[in-house]
């Protein structure tokens, strides 16, 4: 069941989306998120949805995989939507007891849910099409200037890429430990909140112990392969912006501008 979580996974491929410079993709994702928060009307949301669909089409990622990625946050989305539904003042449509549903509420709730879902799908599109190493390389390069003020950029990005590398391994391990404890009669589904929290101990303890052991062994393995920090390190893939990067960035910038202008006119 845990295998269903696709968070932070990468689907190797050769589409345009895969071939873009990771820095471009990170910048685009940032622009996309800014644009999402500026979008306020059907027209601008329409633009954003069109943009997301184009992105998905170009990347060749199965839309199902993206929607599946929403599963873990579905509760947050619903909660925000419901909150907005009842607490937005405006023209009252239905009212019972202290709860009233307004026309504005419906719109806001809808837009809020749409915004969060699109935000998540957009970032997933980034992680699905960018190998975690490329992603951290991109971040390291974009954040490079911070090295001057003694921010350990290389170390942070190395930590991040290792964390990403081990997510699938640890998910698999969690699955295995859960099955093993279930085979000894552990019950993770029934009982009250406290019982359920207690039921997690037989999973978490072995998982932590194993994670520490893995970390230990990995550190030795890295040292054996001459890892000694970021100093003097070269790269297999050196980042170069190409014509397609500039083109895509220009297109995005245009869309962001459009959304901003539309917002200016209250659309």
């Amino acid at each position: 069941m845990l295998k269903d979580i696709t968070l932070g996974q990468f689907f190797p491929g050769t589409s345009l989306a895969h071939r873009l410079d990771p820095r471009t993709k990170i910048l685009l994702t940032v622009i996309y998120i800014v644009a999402l928060f500026c979008a306020e009307s059907f027209v601008s949301y329409g633009l954003m949805v069109a943009l997301l669909i184009t992105g998905v089409k170009v990347s060749g990622v199965a839309p199902k995989a993206l929607v599946k990625g929403l599963k873990p946050v579905i509760f947050i989305i619903c909660f925000t939507a419901v909150l907005n539904l009842f607490y937005t003042p405006g023209e009252i449509l239905v009212q019972f007891w202290v709860l009233k549903i307004t026309k504005e509420g419906i719109f806001t709730a809808f837009f809020m849910a749409l915004r969060i879902s699109m935000l998540i799908m957009g970032t997933f599109l980034l992680t699905y099409t960018t190998s975690p190493i490329a992603l951290t390389d991109g971040l390291e390069s974009l954040l490079g200037p911070l090295k001057k003020i003694k921010v350990p950029v290389h170390e942070l990005s190395m930590m991040m890429s290792i964390a990403l590398r081990f997510i699938p391994t640890l998910i698999e391990e969690t699955d295995k430990i859960m099955s093993a404890q279930r085979a000894r009669g552990a019950d993770f589904e029934s009982g009250n909140l406290l019982d359920r929290a207690k039921a997690l101990v037989p999973i978490l303890v072995p998982l932590f112990i194993s994670a520490f052991r893995r970390a230990d062994e990995l550190a030795v393995a890295m040292e054996c392969r001459c890892y000694h920090g970021g100093q003097g390190r070269t790269k297999l893939h050196v980042l170069h912006y190409q014509a397609k990067d500039y083109l895509v960035m220009a297109a995005y910038a245009a869309i962001l501008a459009a959304v901003l202008i539309l917002a200016r006119f209250g659309l």
Binding site: A180, Q181, A183, P206
Partner: peptide, 11 residues
């Protein structure tokens, strides 16, 4: 059922 490498489930 005893899984493979069962020592990893001790807690």
């Amino acid at each position: 059922l005893v899984f493979q490498y069962p020592e990893y489930q001790l807690f």
